[in-house]
Design a protein around this nucleic acid. Sequence first.
DNA 1: TTTT
DNA 2: TTTT
Lengths: 148, 148, 148, 148
Amino acid sequence: MAGVNKVILVGNLGADPEVKHLEGDKVVANLRLATTEAYKDKMGNRVENTEWHDLELWDGQARIAEQYLKKGSQIFVEGKIKSDTWQDENGNNRKRTKIRVLSFTMLGGRPDNAGGAPQNNNYSQQSGKATAPSAVSEGPAEDDDLPF
Amino acid sequence: MAGVNKVILVGNLGADPEVKHLEGDKVVANLRLATTEAYKDKMGNRVENTEWHDLELWDGQARIAEQYLKKGSQIFVEGKIKSDTWQDENGNNRKRTKIRVLSFTMLGGRPDNAGGAPQNNNYSQQSGKATAPSAVSEGPAEDDDLPF
Amino acid sequence: MAGVNKVILVGNLGADPEVKHLEGDKVVANLRLATTEAYKDKMGNRVENTEWHDLELWDGQARIAEQYLKKGSQIFVEGKIKSDTWQDENGNNRKRTKIRVLSFTMLGGRPDNAGGAPQNNNYSQQSGKATAPSAVSEGPAEDDDLPF
Amino acid sequence: MAGVNKVILVGNLGADPEVKHLEGDKVVANLRLATTEAYKDKMGNRVENTEWHDLELWDGQARIAEQYLKKGSQIFVEGKIKSDTWQDENGNNRKRTKIRVLSFTMLGGRPDNAGGAPQNNNYSQQSGKATAPSAVSEGPAEDDDLPF
DNA sequence: TTTT
DNA sequence: TTTT
């Protein structure tokens, strides 16, 4: 019955994070991530193929993304596929798929906003929870969770 | 630049494979796979959440799927996210996401059509290629590749 | 700095779990898991290659393993590589590698000890923690956590 | 029967690659890769834990590693666990575990030896094979496969 | 022995 | 629409 639904991505952000602060301390960040693969076609020409992914992060992760990620950032992502389905104005069934991020790691060089900023820690909901055992809300992480 | 786009799923088929035999020995199979997660909500009630995935398999894998998979089959899948984008009749941008399967493994018990049938081998495009060095078509595997 | 260390296995147990109940409610289970790959060699002969993995599970997971897994069980495992290093009696550096299991899922058919037993839920430390917020010990899960 | 044995790592090299050119155009490279995780202990102190992995690459990949990787390089690795077992001089069973690399991707900034050098492509045996269908040796990739 |  |  139980299944596995796991996504692993390494890519670069196509834009700065879009962050919304909701009521009750909830925060959601949406990221556009490009994963590019390159190969040679039958003629031997190099071809590049880019897939764009819609990522969704919540709360502690969303805050870290807001603070440290920006257009061009390279990240490692682990998450799961999550789709919304609805009916559009014409009564057609519609579906939109995104990646719910469970943890991410910043890759590569020191970010611009250095000065004590983290380089690439692994920000997971679980570690957030682990480092804030006193947190009361069911949300996985609070501001003071930022692991640095 | 280069990235990683990897999906790992374990779930059950919601229906028999839909297989289309195209010109030039090409075959494509479409599968509907359910991955279910169960958890307890704040009230302690057990909640089940099912995500449905559209899988696409080609050629050798499609043939194996056609022959051995059916509604209810439990499989392990490795693949990548691949989306099609287009404009609908109203000029709106549309996007549809599916999983391009790179390898799969049948899980669990012996299939009904036993009698020499495979139990759960790992069917990858690569192994297909490896075992059919004489294959002419660009397709990765031919019928006689069935790895058993 | 931060890195990723992830292992994904699907295989069968070579023996019943070995479980040790330690002081302070700690429990550890050790499993031997076989992952088999089959391929054809240059001569076209089918070759099977089995890799044996030493798995280590703690507390809530260990208890579930003790109760539901046995020789032959097929499971999906997610974990990380963890090695111990020491000096042997001759002063040589020695190293032993095992897989620290973070979550596992039972695959395939109904277990023998049926009668309400779980078939294949996903037992992760996190979900254990999530469903036992009142647990006092630092261990992630208690007996009454069994997610069913 | 068939199983899954998959390892995914992101880390840094502890030393330059060790490369051996064998007879018959075979090449093997051995890498030492560190994956570091950081967390806070019960006292709230930041703790770092580093795991060292022995990686083994062959042929085309080994050549690319030799040319572009060095001490400190950050890479994404996909591979499988592979152990050697033997009896030591005292008749004791010994086992050594390494990661057989199936593909890797260079992460982060442009390497020092820039000037046309690849930034971070994905070097897999399969793509090597795919782009060199005329290769005769069973080895997956030849020098002229370098995907750039 | 890496990385921060 | 699967699975339990």
